[in-house]
Design a protein around this nucleic acid. Structure first.
Lengths: 203, 203
DNA sequence: CTCAAGACTTACCAAATGGTAGAAAAATCG
DNA sequence: CGATTTTTCTACCATTTGGTAAGTCTTGAG
């Protein structure tokens, strides 16, 4: 028998994968259990209900996401290109944990049962990000715009790059898109041209 | 009894709504029927199976989407700001038919059963859009970049603006975002700074 | 060794789901 | 009107689903 929380971890990982790819409703506990060579009741033992499992996966994911971004947001007044730092770090998450963004996408759907919980979980991170941006604007390192709007655009683009790629590939844009590094570069120039103060802009 | 294809139309509309909001797997034919005050078998009579219904909804939606964009893509060498035309038209679709984009989002999920069909349906439109952009670049009206990449970014942002707004609202960005017109404006400047040829750029 | 707590399983189940078969009702047309 | 076709409904059904109840097995502390 698996000691420690090993089984629990395995379930969480597979659940993230399944929720992220075939969705919450599309995931059956029986299938999940079979994929893990485990009995369904083991899952229910650890997480009480399917919703409980979703909540656990969600909590876990948001935690990882937060940890990844926290350090960048926390780094104070260095002179480095902080936008680049942020984009780089977000991209790292997107590349290492695409499932995580897939889950965000799944859960953020208007009809999702987990929306309220997501709010509770993400609120601090969002406030933090907005505060960070406003601080940047205050100090003149970032052009003054609506922080929320930029956040929305950036968020959409990143999640899009990570997940919506599929539709384009499916829709006929077959040739594999540029490597991730180049895509990041593209996003960077988008953000730079939009955010860098005019007087510093060299393009 | 409803003559003509009236019932069929009603079913299609409600199905689009349901698929788009609570997803394909989350939609039950019984619930759908009840919402329409109709018996489930009526749905199956018209669309054979649940998959058949999804396909029908998909075909219908892609058709509307294509029609909306076709005219812009078709308009030849006018001197007007064609990027603005395109963005404007896409936004009009997004605002008038948000469910349509919601469906795209749902269906474009990697695990979706409708992905192959989506490919068939969207391919011409995508090729068309790419050809359009390359033509613009050729003539110097658009800065030379990777058309596919720009398409991906623009697509992500629009679908994002239309659907992912929900997550931010849910995640604590409560204050209602700027009106659509301003958001469109923002997207326009994103695209302009990225696409307008340098020598013409005034910012 | 004992025994309680934790981890995992077998045995079931009520509800919901997509779907089939065929009758009944409505519309269409000569 | 009467016959035929189209549309909708009632009656079922097999399977799947999330979940409950109650056991068995494992482990670690005393």
């Amino acid at each position: 028998m698996a000691p420690r929380g090993e089984t629990k971890e395995r379930i969480l990982a597979k659940a993230l994968e399944s929720f992220s790819i075939i969705g919450y409703d599309g995931t059956s506990l029986d299938d999940l259990a079979e994929a893990l060579d485990i009995r369904k009741q083991t899952i229910l033992y650890h997480f009480v209900s399917k919703r409980g499992l979703l909540n656990a996966v969600l909590d876990d994911s948001v935690k990882k996401l937060t940890e990844s971004l926290e350090e960048v947001l926390a780094s104070t007044n260095s002179n480095r290109d902080r936008i680049e730092d942020l984009v780089r770090s977000v991209f790292r998450v997107a590349l290492e944990q695409p499932l995580l963004l897939g889950l965000l996408r799944e859960v953020s759907r208007p009809g999702s049962p987990a929306a309220p919980r997501l709010k509770t979980q993400m609120s601090p991170l969002m406030s933090r990000a907005i505060a960070w941006m406003e601080e940047e604007m205050e100090s003149g390192r970032m052009r003054r715009t609506d922080a929320q709007l930029v956040l929305l655009s950036a968020y959409s683009t990143v999640v899009g790059l990570a997940t919506e790629i599929e539709i384009l590939r499916t829709a006929g844009v077959e040739r594999v898109l540029r490597p991730a590094a180049q895509r990041r570069q593209e996003l960077l120039s988008f953000l730079r041209t939009s955010l860098t103060p005019l007087e510093k802009q060299t393009i």
